[in-house]
């Protein structure tokens, strides 16, 4: 049964996952790179946060460290890609694979680390009225963080350096000819993207899972892409303002999470079916333009064929109809 609770949980999770989606949007849409590093930087953010909080660090500082760790992951992929000219996809895969070992090292050879010390969730609980439901906490924090990130990204991509990032993603050759150090710009973009992904992982670990799991990154890129595409398909018309685009991406993440939450209420689906549902959503969304085009073409051909028969054929053949 799809209940209000299901929808609220979709909203709560969606807002936190949206931070990761914004990161994926930066690489996938602005830099034109499908960056698989995110599969590793998402649990990296969670692992760093969990271990540091348990070690006694203030949760806000721990989140900040997770962001820095994400930057480092992006830096490594960026160096592989720009300095050593390894294709972007492969660079991401290399960092992702390496991060699996790194994450387990960070978590002292464990696959799961429960957050036992007060986390950001606890801080929020202290701020909000007593007995505020967990989902509400996520929603409040999610809205604040998402809006702050949208504001920051909106500002950043309007600056000279931000424009250089967009130009590099659009046409590297042009950017270089205008004096943009495209290598550094790509590295910067990957760092910002992975910082957001790590932040998302850090918050998911604290608000949702209550622990860091080494496997929690599986499928991150596909979830991110699914959310980006859903957001674009539903909300974005051609020349929308950049801030609206970012908000549409957040909405995409929320819708994606809600779809998943609803799908899981069907008794014939298991939690482990989540991945195939995601894969199906992304495949359909990516195939949609091709399908649309093909339908439109067929329609046009059929119309023209009819016109050909009624107008030209009869005239050319002296009125005789040729079957």
């Amino acid at each position: 049964m799809i209940t209000t609770a299901t929808l609220i949980s979709g909203l709560a999770q969606g807002l936190i996952w949206a931070i990761m989606t914004l990161g994926v949007y930066i690489t996938f849409r602005i830099l034109d790179i499908a960056d698989l590093t995110v599969e590793g930087s998402f649990p990296l953010g969670a692992a760093v946060t969990a271990v540091l909080i348990n070690g006694g660090m203030h949760p806000v500082l721990a989140v900040f460290m997770a962001i820095l760790a994400g930057c480092a992951a992006g830096l490594v992929t960026g160096i592989f890609h720009t300095i050593f000219k390894i294709p972007a996809i492969l660079s991401g895969i290399l960092t992702m694979i390496a991060l699996y070992s790194v994450n387990i090292r960070i978590m002292s050879d464990k696959a799961t680390v429960a957050i036992v010390q007060p986390s950001v969730k606890k801080l929020m609980q202290n701020l909000l009225p007593e007995g505020t439901p967990s989902n509400t906490i996520s929603i409040v924090l999610g809205v604040i963080v998402c809006l702050a990130i949208v504001a920051l990204l909106y500002y950043f991509f309007g600056t000279e350096i931000g424009c250089a990032v967009r130009a590099t993603g659009s046409n590297q050759n042009m950017a270089r000819s205008l004096g943009v150090r495209t290598d550094r710009i790509i590295i910067l973009g990957l760092m910002i993207s992975n910082a957001l992904v790590a932040l998302s992982g850090s918050l998911i670990a604290q608000l949702d899972y209550g622990s860091a799991l080494v496997t929690m990154g599986q499928g991150t890129i596909v979830i991110g892409l699914a959310s980006v595409i859903i957001g674009e398909v539903i909300f974005i018309r051609k020349d929308r303002n950049f801030a609206i685009k970012l908000i549409a991406i957040i909405a995409g993440a929320i819708i994606y999470r809600t779809i998943i939450a609803c799908a899981l209420t069907f008794s014939f689906l298991k939690a482990t079916d989540l991945k195939i549902i995601t894969a199906i959503i992304v495949s359909i969304a990516l195939a949609l333009p091709v399908i649309k085009q093909s339908i439109a073409e067929r329609k046009l051909r059929a119309e023209n064929a009819k016109r050909f028969e009624t107008e030209f054929l009869n005239a050319d053949m002296g009125g005789e109809h040729v079957a």
């Binding site: 130009a167 659009s170 046409n171 042009m174 950017a175 205008l178």
Partner: peptide, 20 residues
């Protein structure tokens, strides 16, 4: 196609060039 960024506006392209 090589000299301009297609996904950016005309004025944004010029602004990139202005900062060459």
């Amino acid at each position: 196609m090589m000299g301009t960024a297609p996904t950016m506006m005309i004025e944004e392209n010029l602004a990139m060039a202005y900062r060459r």
